[in-house]
Simulated scan of single mutants.
Amino acid sequence: MPPTTPFPVFRFAPSPNGYLHLGHAYSAYQGAEAAAREGGRFLLRIEDIDIGRCREEYVDAIYEDLAWLGLSWERPVLRQSARFALYEDALKTLRGLGVVYPCFATRKEIIAAIEDSGVALERWPRDPDGALIYPGLYKDLPPRELSRLMWEGISYAWRLDMEKAKALAEEMAGGPLTFLEEGTGPKGETGRLPIEPELYGDVVVARKDVPTSYHIAVTIDDAAQGITHITRGQDLFYMTHVHRVLQVLLGLPEPIYRHHALIRDETGRRLSKTAADRGIRELREAGKSPEDVRRLIGLEAAL
């Protein structure tokens, strides 16, 4: 069951791999205003596990942009890059449960295996994010072969055996898993919903050189920070199915979810850092005000 605490806790958790854009402003406002409206707390978390892409200049820019928007948050701010040992402990728990396995397949091997299956690449199942569903290479390696590959130091990732993980989670929970959606999913989904983590297949939960993935890190940190309400964009809606499995397997509480619509450009494309969409910093430099930003993203009353 979701928490019934009288002190709801919300969060905004950006990754410092680029400057914030209007979509980030909308999501941050959603969490902060819900916290204010419901007498709760608002936290900021910096999700910087991707050491190769994250930059301190972007961390500083996040603080500056949010403050300029009129938002405030509790200190200190949790940084995921300081918590790898905790994520590794979670991975060890999953290994102990027998629901993860090392996968040595490269992207090239995965594509080749799909093509060799006789199914055209464009017809192969894809997950909600558009990635090819993993075809199961290396999933059932004999122990001797597995030991040989690991001894040779070949790069690998840890994948969640989704069928086994879901079955064990349901056994631990005493029945089918669900989550409470107080917002709306991309197709209008709302209310108490059943999980379908098989939509993602055997997802990567850690790599040899980085002992975590978004799935493990966000699940562990939401629990550690006592987050009761997860407010985020609809692009992350389907990941909730995976996170509910991890929450049960790791003995973590179930939060309430509020997914919101995405801010899009005039063509209907959602804004993104990779597309270098117009950022909060640019709007500030152009002389815009926080009230202008709120109008641009469809929010009327200022904080």
Rank of each mutant, 00 (worst) to 15 (best):
I111G: 06
I111V: 15
A112E: 15
A112M: 02
A112Q: 09
A112K: 04
A112Y: 10
A112D: 14
A113R: 08
A113C: 08
A113Q: 12
A113V: 09
A113E: 13
A113W: 03
I114A: 03
I114N: 06
E115W: 00
E115C: 01
E115R: 08
E115I: 02
D116Y: 00
D116T: 09
D116I: 00
S117A: 01
S117T: 00
S117L: 10
G118R: 00
G118L: 10
V119G: 05
V119Q: 06
V119A: 03
A120C: 01
A120F: 02
A120L: 12
A120V: 00
L121Y: 11
L121I: 13
L121S: 07
L121C: 06
E122K: 10
E122N: 07
R123Q: 14
R123Y: 05
R123A: 12
W124V: 10
W124C: 02
W124E: 11
P125D: 15
P125R: 10
P125E: 14
P125A: 11
P125N: 09
R126H: 12
R126L: 15
D127M: 03
D129C: 01
D129A: 05
D129I: 02
G130Q: 05
G130I: 13
A131W: 07
A131S: 15
A131D: 15
L132I: 12
L132Y: 13
L132T: 00
L132C: 03
I133G: 05
I133H: 06
Y134K: 04
Y134F: 11
P135R: 01
P135M: 08
P135L: 10
G136C: 08
G136N: 07
G136L: 06
G136P: 11
Y138F: 13
Y138I: 06
Y138A: 14
Y138L: 15
K139S: 15
K139P: 11
K139Q: 14
K139M: 06
D140L: 08
L141R: 01
L141Q: 03
L141I: 03
L141P: 10
P142K: 00
P142C: 11
P143T: 15
P143H: 03
R144E: 15
R144H: 08
R144C: 02
R144M: 08
R144Q: 14
E145K: 06
E145P: 09
E145W: 02
E145Y: 05
E145A: 11
S147M: 10
S147D: 14
S147E: 14
S147C: 04
R148W: 02
R148N: 13
L149G: 03
L149A: 12
M150E: 09
M150N: 00
W151L: 06
W151M: 12
W151C: 10
W151I: 13
E152P: 03
E152L: 14
G153T: 05
I154L: 12
I154D: 06
I154A: 05
I154Q: 12
I154P: 03
I154W: 11
S155L: 11
S155N: 09
S155F: 14
Y156D: 01
Y156C: 02
A157Q: 13
A157C: 02
W158P: 00
W158D: 11
W158L: 10
W158E: 10
W158Y: 13
L160S: 11
L160V: 11
D161Y: 04
D161V: 12
M162D: 07
M162F: 04
M162H: 07
M162G: 08
E163Y: 02
E163N: 11
K164A: 15
K164Q: 08
K164R: 15
